[in-house]
Design a protein around this nucleic acid. Structure first.
Length: 272
DNA sequence: GTATGCACAGAGGATGCTCC
DNA sequence: GGAGCATCCTCTGTGCATAC
C-alpha cells in the first residue's frame, strides 16, 4: 500500500518556483525570520492543500488540514553557518502530535548588495539551494518532550531565578550529505514511494548511536556540565532514506558525508 | 509581566598559506 | 619546522518578536 504524502508535490512547487525565478521578499528591512517562510507558504498554496497559518511560537510552521503532515521551515544565509543550525527549543523529529514532519532548509545569499531593491531598505533575492527532508533524517526519536524549567533562590539574597532554557543545535542536511550544495533535493524515508516524475539520486543511512543522553547536571561552582548517558537499546539500528529530484533536474548523486558531525560534551556556553 | 521562539551578528577559534 | 598573518568557520549571546 502506498503512503500518501504531500512532500513530493510541495518539493516540486519549490523547484518550479526557483526555476521560474520566484524571489524571496522580506517583510521589512529587519525581517530575518518570515521572508523564507513566506516564500515557502506561496509554494504550499500551489498544491491542493489547506494549512494553518504559521505563528511565531508554533511548531511546525505549517500544519496541513487534510493531511497529518506539517512543514518546518529554516531559512539560512549562505555562505554562513553550515555545519549546524539552531533548532532552538524544538528538537527535530519526523513525528509530532500525530503529524509527519518535513523540514525545508532554504539558503539565500548572505550578501544582498547585488540584488534588486524593493524600496530603500529591502531587496529581493533568490533561493541558492534547498533541501526538504523528513524530520527523522535529523532525529528519529518521537518520544522526547521538551520542557523548560526554572528555580528560585540563587544569589546571595536568594531572590534570583535561574531559567533552564534549553537550545538544541542539530546538523543541517547540507552538512550530513554530499551532493546537495547549490541544488534542490528531497530526502524521505525509503518506505515512501516516489511519483514517476521523480528519480532517485542517492540512498542514505543514519545509524543510531551507542549511547543516549538522558539528562545533565550543571555545577554552578565549577561551571562544569556533565551528561548522564545510558546504553541505547537500539544502538546500531539503521534508518534508511532515499534522495530524490525531479527528472528535469540534475542527476548529481547524493551521499552521506564520510564522518557525521558529533557534538562534544561540556563546551563553553559563554564565559561572561 | 513572564515565558518562549527565532535566527543573525560578531568574537574568536581553527585552518591554511607564505616566508624565513 | 616555526612564526606570522589571512581567511574561514563555528558557536554563543543577543535583539526582537509573539504567546501565554
Amino acid at each position: 500500500m502506498k503512503t500518501m504524502t504531500t512532500c513530493f508535490d510541495a518539493f516540486e512547487q519549490c523547484v518550479l518556483a526557483v526555476q521560474a525565478g520566484e524571489l524571496i521578499e522580506p517583510v521589512s528591512a529587519k525581517d530575518k525570520e518570515f521572508h523564507f517562510q513566506n516564500w515557502f507558504q506561496n509554494r504550499l498554496r500551489g498544491i491542493s492543500v489547506h494549512f494553518e497559518g504559521s505563528g511565531r511560537n508554533t511548531y511546525p510552521d505549517f500544519s496541513l488540514v487534510e493531511h497529518a503532515e506539517g512543514y518546518e521551515v529554516k531559512g539560512l544565509a549562505w555562505p554562513g553557518r553550515e555545519r549546524d543550525y539552531d533548532s532552538n527549543s524544538q528538537v527535530p523529529t519526523g513525528h509530532h502530535n500525530g503529524r509527519r514532519i518535513f523540514y525545508v532548509f532554504g539558503r539565500y545569499p548572505a550578501d544582498l548588495a547585488p540584488y534588486q531593491s524593493l524600496d530603500s531598505d529591502r531587496r529581493q533575492y533568490p533561493v541558492v539551494d534547498l533541501v526538504m527532508c523528513h524530520g527523522d533524517f535529523l532525529n528519529a526519536d518521537h518520544d522526547y518532550v521538551h520542557r523548560n524549567k526554572s528555580m528560585k533562590g540563587f544569589g546571595t539574597y536568594g531572590d534570583i531565578m535561574i531559567r533552564d532554557r534549553k537550545m538544541y543545535v542539530a546538523p543541517t542536511p547540507f552538512a550530513l550529505t554530499e551532493g546537495t550544495t547549490g541544488l534542490m533535493t528531497l530526502i524521505v524515508p525509503e518506505s515512501l514511494d516516489a511519483p514517476a516524475r521523480f528519480k532517485e539520486v542517492g540512498k542514505l543511512a543514519r545509524v543510531e548511536a551507542a549511547e543516549l543522553v538522558v539528562g545533565y547536571a550543571f555545577d554552578l561552582r565549577t561551571n562544569e556540565l556533565r551528561a548522564e548517558r545510558i546504553p541505547n537499546p537500539r544502538a546500531g539500528a539503521v534508518h534508511r532514506f532515499a534522495a530524490y529530484r525531479l527528472k528535469t533536474q540534475t542527476a548529481k548523486p547524493v551521499s552521506m558525508v564520510s564522518r557525521n558531525p558529533v557534538v562534544e560534551d561540556g563546551s563553553d556556553e559563554g564565559g561572561k
